[in-house]
Simulated assay, not measured.
Amino acid sequence: MPSSLRILAVVGLSALLGACSLFKFPGVHRIEVQQGNIVTQEMVDQLKPGMTRRQVRFVLGTPLIEDTFNPNRWDYINRVRDPENEVTQKRFSVYFNGDILIATSGDWQPAGWPE
Rank of each mutant, 00 (worst) to 15 (best):
M1S: 14
S3T: 12
S4R: 10
L5G: 08
R6H: 06
R6C: 07
L13K: 08
L13V: 11
L17S: 09
K24L: 14
F25Y: 09
F25N: 04
F25D: 01
G27F: 10
H29N: 08
R30V: 01
I31V: 09
Q34Y: 06
Q35T: 14
Q35M: 14
G36L: 11
N37T: 12
I38D: 08
I38R: 11
V39C: 10
Q41F: 03
Q41W: 02
E42I: 06
M43H: 12
M43D: 11
Q46I: 01
K48S: 04
P49K: 00
G50H: 05
M51C: 00
T52Y: 13
T52K: 10
R54K: 15
F58P: 05
V59W: 14
V59L: 15
V59F: 12
G61S: 03
L64C: 05
L64P: 00
I65E: 11
I65T: 12
E66R: 14
F69R: 08
N72L: 09
N78P: 04
N78F: 11
R79I: 13
V80P: 07
V80Q: 13
D82L: 04
P83E: 08
P83N: 03
E86M: 06
V87Q: 07
Q89V: 12
S93P: 05
N97S: 10
N97L: 07
N97Y: 06
G98V: 14
G98N: 13
D99W: 11
I100E: 11
L101T: 02
A103W: 10
S105Y: 07
G106M: 07
G106A: 13
Q109D: 06
G112V: 06
W113A: 05
W113Q: 05
E115R: 14
